[in-house]
């Protein structure tokens, strides 16, 4: 089943200069009781975003109208912890197309890619440059071009390459899905099983 295609985005961005943002913060466990993928965006960063009574916390960045955009820029080691893909669904559901950080946890990186949300790993210096730009101008923009694998701090003109394997890049650019690909390999999988170690 196709996922959303990713080509290029140029947008203002939401800064979250906090390290080790774990998946329990992205989507707390008590919101994992659904049996569909819908509605997780409403609970994205719930405990940081809302007071106990459900009213928005004014000092949280998603509640600050000064910041907007479809890219989240966060401190290093983003997405650590639980394997819950609900974290990627929440980020996607909220409307983010990409997350930029200087380091991503492995499972989160994979889950994001499988949902068409691009994790863009940048250098510490580039990340600091983005935070600086948005400090100076809330509507500072970032441009992410998947085809050329470059990210640009639009306000400063600084640009940097980022890595993604060519298989996943192709999947994202064309909206391909791994499961369709794996289903096409049934003969190879049966051949593997025939020669595998058995007791």
């Amino acid at each position: 089943m196709p996922i959303d295609k990713f080509v290029t985005v140029q947008t203002s961005f939401v800064p979250m200069p906090i390290e080790n943002v774990d998946t329990d913060q992205i989507i707390p466990a008590r919101f994992l009781k659904a049996t569909t993928k819908d509605g997780f965006g409403d609970n994205l960063f719930y405990d940081w975003r809302y007071e106990k009574d459900g009213s928005p916390k004014a000092d949280f960045v998603l509640n600050n109208p000064a910041y907007s955009g479809t890219v989240l820029v966060a401190g290093k080691n983003f997405g650590s912890g639980s394997s819950r893909e609900h974290a990627a669904w929440a980020i996607d559901g909220y409307g983010f197309k990409a997350v930029v950080s200087s380091f991503f946890a492995d499972i989160f990186r994979g889950n994001s890619l499988n949902n068409g949300v691009l994790p863009v790993q940048v250098s510490e210096a580039f990340l600091a440059g983005l935070f600086k730009a948005v400090d100076a101008d809330n509507k500072a923009e970032v441009k992410i071009d998947l085809e050329s694998q470059t990210i640009t701090n639009v306000n400063t003109g600084d640009s940097e390459g980022f890595e993604i394997n060519s298989y996943k890049k192709n999947c994202l650019m064309n909206g391909y899905d791994d499961i369709d690909y794996l289903l096409s390999l049934s003969k190879e999988i049966e051949a593997y099983e025939a020669k595998a170690v058995k007791f």
């Binding site: 394997s83 893909e85 994979g110 390999l185 999988i189």
Partner: peptide
């Protein structure tokens, strides 16, 4: 190792998943 739900679907549907070698 732990996997996301897309990979749970892959493993259920094909008994395989796609993984870069760490």
């Amino acid at each position: 190792f732990g996997i996301g739900t897309s990979e749970v679907e892959m493993a259920l549907a094909t008994q395989c998943i796609m993984q870069p070698k760490p």
